[in-house]
Every structure is written in C-alpha cells, then in structure tokens.
Design a protein around this nucleic acid. Structure first.
Lengths: 224, 224
DNA sequence: CTATCTATGTATAATAA
DNA sequence: TTTATTATACATAGATA
C-alpha cells in the first residue's frame, strides 16, 4: 500500500509502529462497522494498542452481549475454522516469499533463528525481573526495602509524585467546572467504539466523518 | 469499491448479502491479522454470520486470553461490565477445554519449537508493556494524565502505595531503635492493603493468573 | 498523537462459473 | 457457499506540518 509494498512483519521503528497502529486501527474499525451494517451481523473487535490501551468496536449490540453470545455457543459451533483456514493460507504465502528471499539473499538457518529467539527471550525475561523488582518496591516488600534511608527515599519520591498528581487533578477539576466546554470530546460511533482511557484529542474530525451519527446503543461507557 | 460505489446500508438481497459477508469477513480477518503482526498487538475479532455461524480471529494469543485480558481490565479503562462474573467463569471454562485439546497432540518439530519461542517472546513483551504502564503511574509525569478519572485513579494508587512504604519505614525504624523485641506493627489498613497489592501485582496481567500460558492452537506463527 | 497529501498497493462489487 | 476475473473504489506508507 502506499508508496511501497509492506512486509507483514513487526515494524521495529517505534514511531512508525504507533503511527501505523493508529491508522490501521481506524481502518479496521471502519471495515468492521461496514460489515456489521452491510450484512446485518454482530461484530465485536477488541484491540490493545502498543501502549496498552484498549480500543473497542461492536455493532448494534454491546461488547458484552456479543462476548456472552460467543461463550454460550456449544463447543462444536465455536470452531476456529475461519481463522485457521485463513492463517494457513496466509502463512503459506508468507513462507513462499520468505523462502525466495532466503534463497536469494542471506540464508538464515533455523538454528540461528532459534538462537536469536532464545536471546530475545532471555533479554525480555531479565527486563521483566528488573521491572518486577521496581514494582515490588511499591508493595512495601521487605526484601526490596531494607534500610531506613531507602524507605525514606521512596517515601519522598511518592510524596512528590502524589503532590504532582493532586495538582494535576485540581487543574482538571477547574477545567470541568468552568463555563467553557470540557477539553475532551466524547466519541460516539454508531456503536460503542472508544479509546478507553484514551480521549480524542482533536475535534471529532477523524474516523467519525464516514460514519452517520446515531444514538449509541451499547453501554461500554467511556470514562473520560 | 469495485465497479460502483456502495452505500453503507443493509444489503437487502439475501444472496448478495451472504456473498459480501463471505468476502468482507476474509478481508477483515486479514486486516486484523496484519495489524496484530505489524504493530505487535493483541487483537480479537468475533463475527456472527448471517446464518448464525461464528467466525473468529485472534492474534498471537488465544481468543480466550484476549477476551480475558479485556474482561479483567480495571473498570475505568473499560467501562462497566454488568456480566463480568459470568464472562470470567465462562472464559475459564473455555480455557480448560482448550487446554485439554492442546494436551492431546504435541508434535515436537523444530517449527513448533520456533513457534513456542515466538509465543514466549510475545507473551514476555505484552507483560513488559503492562508493567511499563503500571510503573508509569509512579513516574509522576502529569502530561500523561488528561482526565479527572485518571488523576483520581493515580492519586488513589499513590496514596495506598505511600501507606505501604510508610508502614515499611516504621518497621525499619523500630528495628533500629529497639534491636531486641520484634517490631509491633500498629498501623491500620489490613484490608486496604489487599486492594493496593491487588492492583500492583495484578492489573491487566492478572489475566495470566487464570489463563494458561499456552496457546491452545499452537499451529502456526499466529494461532487462533 | 492527529491531519493532510500523493503514489501505489489492496479490497471488493458485479458477474459468471 | 467458494472461486476467478476485472474495473474501480479504498486504504495506507511515507513525508510533512
């Protein structure tokens, strides 16, 4: 698409990845919306953004209704048939492409790929260990805070952070209570689509334009 | 698209509607797949065809895992779920079934090992993302907080954490000042504590606690 | 992060099988 | 229902603001 053909593999550049996510998420929601209207079917779509926020879409019904309908299906009807077929097909194509690439360029052996993955895992795990340690500090875990000065240090940091957050809260409260309109815009797609815990920063001139306004029926309320 | 511009409204002709569904469903799944790979995010997609059959897609993780992650989100990030308990129970059941299915067959090829590593990496990374999110609360970067509910949420977390650290500090003080008898903790908050720890240790990754660390469909690079 | 623009890559409506 | 063809409508990568 666009100027170049894009390989379907993880985009390593963080900025590009986020931008692409933002664009494609909107595209995907649009397609889901069109499908649900054109074919009059229930569609539920849940996406977790790279930053951990969740984006939702569902047709006329609420997400929970659709999830409920899904989990209530008899086991034999809950098949993953569609998905599996598609993936097999898609991956077959990818493999062919990869094969050609490998033959033409650098022959990456399975072994070295395995090794690469293992290294990646080790890296990730050590990072996780580190983060867990940092998080444990806030649990008051005795094994993490062993001296008084450490405790005082953390106390100080937390106090400062708390102060900042309260300040921020105050600012936001004033914004909401003042005569002017609130700075955040509540999104209303025909169904419940929302960047939950997110917010539409600009005016409502994005993906909403192509969707006719209608009363939202679902009830996944955006809490922002 | 195609020869004419299509109005986004229910297709009345049954045959056309079904054909369109079939094609667009595949297109939507493909897009969802690309998004999940390109941007390294979790995506879950559920569609009910006009004839009532269900079509699914989910990225690296199993659909149960992603739905679980969604259901387990803190309320302010997702909106109220009226049937949360029900969904959790139902998803748990699905998890068990998937588990049994998975145990039935285990081809130990290099390919499947590669896959397992890839899945492991994806899991680690998603965990890192979650933890980063939790750690960001303690960064005290006010620009991250743009809504009142976010501010209140952070404030609450920080208050509880501060309590924890002060408790720890008190314990340490007593240890230093009276090196004999074991320190008696005289600080309140036995029940509050549980809540805070619950967040700090749980949060969105609490999903990992009740959903298996395996993909039930470990077949290809991406599974169902 | 969002918007806009342009050149291209894709998806797909209509049709036929 | 799925597949193949083809003409068009759309989506979007990359650059830029």
């Amino acid at each position: 698409m666009g100027r170049v053909k894009l390989q379907i593999k993880r985009i390593e550049n963080t900025t590009n990845r986020q931008v692409t996510f933002s664009k494609r998420r909107n595209g995907l929601i649009k397609k889901a919306y069109e499908l649900s209207v054109l074919c009059d079917v229930d569609v539920a779509l849940i996406m977790f953004s790279p930053s951990g926020r969740v984006s939702l879409f569902s047709g006329n019904k609420s997400i929970e209704e659709i999830l409920g309908r899904y989990v209530n299906l008899p086991e034999h009807e809950r098949g993953r048939l569609r998905n599996k077929e598609f993936l097999i097909k898609a991956l077959g194509k990818l493999r062919d492409e990869a094969d050609q690439t490998h033959q033409a360029a650098s022959p990456v052996s399975i072994d070295s790929q395995l090794e690469e993955f293992q290294q990646e895992i080790v890296k990730c795990k050590s990072r996780i260990v580190d983060m867990e340690k940092r998080l444990r500090i806030f649990d008051g875990e005795p094994s993490e805070i062993t001296t008084l000065s450490q405790a005082e240090y953390h106390e100080q940091i937390l106090e400062e952070t708390l102060k900042q957050v309260r300040l921020r809260k105050q600012v936001l409260q004033e914004k909401y209570s003042s005569p002017g309109p609130p700075p955040t815009v509540q999104v209303h797609l025909p169904s419940d689509t929302a960047e939950v815990s997110g917010f539409v920063t600009g005016s409502s001139s994005s993906i909403l334009d192509w969707i006719p306004q209608r009363d939202p029926q679902g009830s996944v309320t955006t809490s922002c």
